[in-house]
């Protein structure tokens, strides 16, 4: 359960076509990372998969059902999305935020059930937010705030969770905290996680499947070891980088040195040369 795929998907903002004729499949039960430079369409793809964006052509499917044809509430029971840096209304408490995750499970007749209560408690416990339940979201630290939003998506109890840059604006410890939480959700609960990430090392370290995009097209997809190579980084990001195995886990680790073919890389060498010749000006 929780397989996503697209067929000839075309996504656009007004007249600005971002993604054309895209065929991609995202494995179920794994963490998939979408990587690529700014404006390559990775967030757009995520929004398209989460029906926040209507496709111009083609379709996206979850377990074989067309996402944009499904009743939106039904889809919300299958797939949760955490948009990039969402803002909670001032004064909203953690508990109130997480309870919103139960929205698709409620109706006019069934306002708040035992199941809702349990789902919220569970989401709070998994994210370690139980002790902050009465705190306003705007009074939390960045990492806690992000955990609170993830807890909301968890309370939705969907097999698939999409996250748009879940670690942006967080410091290193909070980044690790959020990524470990996602790993835990994937391992312990078998949820399919799809995330847009900027840090390549996060992608290789925490994802089992990596999709590299450039200019609205998929350049490579597969396990991190095969996808993340120095040739790919040169092609997708235009950077000169070495790939070394992570000393502890063996996953590819990316060390960028400079922009490929630009003055940045050359400057370093010429400065070195200048220093070596002792002719610093």
């Amino acid at each position: 359960m929780g397989t996503l795929h697209t067929e000839a998907l075309e996504l656009a903002y007004d007249s600005n076509v971002i993604i054309q004729h895209m065929n991609v499949s995202i494995p179920s039960g794994k963490i998939t990372a979408l990587i690529g430079p700014n404006g390559c369409g990775k967030s757009t793809l995520l929004r398209g998969l989460a029906r926040l964006l209507q496709p111009r052509k083609g379709a996206a499917y979850i377990d074989g059902k067309a996402i944009h044809q499904m009743p939106t509430r039904e889809l919300a029971k299958q797939l949760g999305i955490l948009p990039q840096s969402p803002i909670a209304p001032e004064g909203l408490t953690v508990m109130e935020l997480v309870a919103q995750g139960r929205y698709p499970h409620q109706s006019w007749f069934q306002q708040w059930s035992i199941e809702d209560e349990q789902a919220v408690e569970k989401a709070l416990a998994i994210t370690g937010m139980t002790e902050f339940r009465t705190r306003p979201v705007d009074a939390l630290s960045g990492g806690q705030r992000q955990r609170a939003w993830i807890a909301m998506t968890l309370a939705q109890e969907t097999p698939v969770i999409l996250l748009d840059e879940p670690t942006t604006y967080l410091d290193l410890a909070h980044q690790v905290e959020v990524l470990q939480l996602l790993e835990h959700l994937n391992k312990e609960q078998g949820r399919t996680v799809v995330m847009v990430v900027h840090d390549l090392n996060h992608a290789t370290r925490h994802a089992q499947h990596v999709i590299a995009m450039k200019a609205g097209k998929i350049v490579a997809a597969g396990v991190p070891n095969e996808v993340v190579t120095s040739e790919l980084l040169q092609e997708v990001f235009g950077i000169d980088a070495d790939i070394v195995p992570d000393p502890r886990t063996g996953v590819p680790l990316c060390i960028p040195y400079g922009l490929k073919g630009s003055s940045a890389g050359i400057k370093t060498t010429s400065l070195e040369a200048a220093l070596a010749n002792g002719t610093t000006s």
Binding site: L52, E74, P83, P86, P89, Q100, P104, Q156
Partner: peptide
């Protein structure tokens, strides 16, 4: 009332939760 609360989390979040 309930719908406005959900919508006040933002359009994308509300849509993601299955609100029309």
């Amino acid at each position: 009332g309930r719908q406005i609360t959900t919508l006040s989390l933002g359009d994308d979040v509300a849509k993601g939760l299955g609100q029309r």
